[in-house]
Design a protein around this nucleic acid. Structure first.
Length: 106
DNA sequence: AACATGACTCATA
DNA sequence: ATATGAGCCATGT
Protein backbone atom coordinates (compact mmCIF):
# COMPACT_ATOMS: atom_id res chain seq x y z
CA UNK A 1 0.00 0.00 0.00
CA UNK A 2 1.55 3.29 -1.04
CA UNK A 3 1.54 6.36 1.10
CA UNK A 4 -0.69 8.11 -1.35
CA UNK A 5 -3.25 5.36 -1.19
CA UNK A 6 -3.17 5.35 2.59
CA UNK A 7 -3.68 9.08 2.66
CA UNK A 8 -6.56 8.89 0.27
CA UNK A 9 -8.26 6.21 2.29
CA UNK A 10 -7.65 8.07 5.51
CA UNK A 11 -8.98 11.30 4.10
CA UNK A 12 -12.10 9.75 2.72
CA UNK A 13 -12.79 7.97 5.96
CA UNK A 14 -12.53 11.27 7.76
CA UNK A 15 -15.03 13.15 5.68
CA UNK A 16 -17.66 14.09 8.21
CA UNK A 17 -21.22 13.06 7.82
CA UNK A 18 -23.16 15.60 5.85
CA UNK A 19 -20.12 16.99 4.03
CA UNK A 20 -18.54 16.04 0.74
CA UNK A 21 -15.18 16.34 -1.02
CA UNK A 22 -14.08 16.33 -4.63
CA UNK A 23 -11.56 14.06 -6.30
CA UNK A 24 -9.12 16.85 -6.89
CA UNK A 25 -9.25 18.05 -3.31
CA UNK A 26 -8.60 14.58 -2.02
CA UNK A 27 -5.68 14.04 -4.37
CA UNK A 28 -4.16 17.32 -3.35
CA UNK A 29 -4.67 16.71 0.35
CA UNK A 30 -3.12 13.27 -0.08
CA UNK A 31 0.03 14.83 -1.49
CA UNK A 32 -0.44 14.28 -5.21
CA UNK A 33 -2.12 17.19 -6.88
CA UNK A 34 -3.51 16.16 -10.19
CA UNK A 35 -3.95 12.53 -9.26
CA UNK A 36 -7.69 12.72 -9.27
CA UNK A 37 -7.86 9.70 -11.51
CA UNK A 38 -6.12 7.56 -8.97
CA UNK A 39 -8.62 8.69 -6.41
CA UNK A 40 -11.33 7.59 -8.77
CA UNK A 41 -9.67 4.26 -9.22
CA UNK A 42 -9.21 3.72 -5.50
CA UNK A 43 -12.81 4.55 -4.90
CA UNK A 44 -13.91 2.31 -7.67
CA UNK A 45 -11.92 -0.70 -6.59
CA UNK A 46 -11.36 -0.46 -2.85
CA UNK A 47 -14.27 1.38 -1.31
CA UNK A 48 -16.00 -1.74 -0.17
CA UNK A 49 -13.00 -3.49 1.30
CA UNK A 50 -11.93 -0.45 3.28
CA UNK A 51 -15.44 0.61 4.16
CA UNK A 52 -15.10 4.03 2.67
CA UNK A 53 -17.97 6.52 2.65
CA UNK A 54 -17.76 6.64 -1.13
CA UNK A 55 -21.00 8.52 -1.40
CA UNK A 56 -19.33 11.58 0.09
CA UNK A 57 -16.97 11.91 -2.86
CA UNK A 58 -18.07 13.91 -5.87
CA UNK A 59 -16.56 15.48 -8.95
CA UNK A 60 -15.08 18.93 -9.25
CA UNK A 61 -18.35 20.48 -10.32
CA UNK A 62 -20.05 19.41 -7.15
CA UNK A 63 -22.00 16.71 -8.86
CA UNK A 64 -22.36 12.99 -8.61
CA UNK A 65 -20.10 11.40 -11.13
CA UNK A 66 -21.90 8.17 -11.74
CA UNK A 67 -23.22 7.42 -15.14
CA UNK A 68 -25.07 4.40 -13.90
CA UNK A 69 -28.54 5.48 -12.86
CA UNK A 70 -28.98 2.93 -10.16
CA UNK A 71 -25.73 3.81 -8.42
CA UNK A 72 -26.55 7.44 -8.84
CA UNK A 73 -29.79 7.00 -6.97
CA UNK A 74 -28.09 5.01 -4.25
CA UNK A 75 -25.58 7.76 -3.69
CA UNK A 76 -28.16 10.48 -3.78
CA UNK A 77 -30.32 8.71 -1.25
CA UNK A 78 -27.39 8.23 1.09
CA UNK A 79 -26.46 11.87 0.86
CA UNK A 80 -29.98 13.05 1.43
CA UNK A 81 -30.27 10.81 4.44
CA UNK A 82 -27.21 12.58 5.82
CA UNK A 83 -28.78 15.95 5.29
CA UNK A 84 -26.93 16.99 2.14
CA UNK A 85 -28.99 19.33 0.04
CA UNK A 86 -29.17 19.25 -3.72
CA UNK A 87 -29.42 22.41 -5.74
CA UNK A 88 -30.53 20.46 -8.79
CA UNK A 89 -30.95 16.91 -9.91
CA UNK A 90 -27.26 16.09 -9.86
CA UNK A 91 -25.55 19.01 -8.22
CA UNK A 92 -24.96 19.30 -4.55
CA UNK A 93 -25.64 22.56 -2.80
CA UNK A 94 -22.50 24.62 -2.47
CA UNK A 95 -23.18 25.08 1.19
CA UNK A 96 -22.14 21.55 1.83
CA UNK A 97 -18.81 21.13 0.21
CA UNK A 98 -17.03 23.95 1.89
CA UNK A 99 -15.29 21.32 3.87
CA UNK A 100 -12.00 21.51 2.01
CA UNK A 101 -11.35 24.87 3.60
CA UNK A 102 -11.21 23.33 7.03
CA UNK A 103 -9.19 20.42 5.78
CA UNK A 104 -6.41 22.31 4.08
CA UNK A 105 -5.50 23.98 7.32
CA UNK A 106 -4.72 20.72 9.06
C1' DA B 1 -5.57 26.91 -28.58
C1' DA B 2 -4.29 25.22 -23.76
C1' DC B 3 -5.42 23.37 -19.68
C1' DA B 4 -8.08 20.66 -16.07
C1' DT B 5 -10.86 16.88 -14.72
C1' DG B 6 -12.27 12.31 -14.79
C1' DA B 7 -16.76 6.19 -10.27
C1' DC B 8 -11.83 4.54 -17.37
C1' DT B 9 -9.09 0.87 -18.84
C1' DC B 10 -4.98 -1.59 -19.42
C1' DA B 11 -0.51 -3.56 -18.29
C1' DT B 12 2.36 -4.93 -14.50
C1' DA B 13 3.86 -6.42 -10.07
C1' DA C 1 -7.15 -12.20 -7.21
C1' DT C 2 -5.50 -7.31 -5.45
C1' DA C 3 -3.01 -2.93 -5.92
C1' DT C 4 -0.62 0.56 -8.54
C1' DG C 5 0.86 3.66 -12.13
C1' DA C 6 0.03 5.58 -16.32
C1' DG C 7 -2.10 6.64 -20.84
C1' DC C 8 -5.96 7.70 -23.86
C1' DC C 9 -9.81 10.43 -24.72
C1' DA C 10 -13.95 13.08 -24.25
C1' DT C 11 -15.83 17.18 -22.28
C1' DG C 12 -15.85 21.56 -20.62
C1' DT C 13 -13.53 26.03 -19.17
Amino acid sequence: MTQFTKNVIEIIKNIPCGKVMTYGQIAKAAGSPGAARQVVRILHSMSEKYELPWHRVINSKGEIGFQDEEMFHTQKSLLISEGVEFSSNRAISLLIYLWDIEYEQS
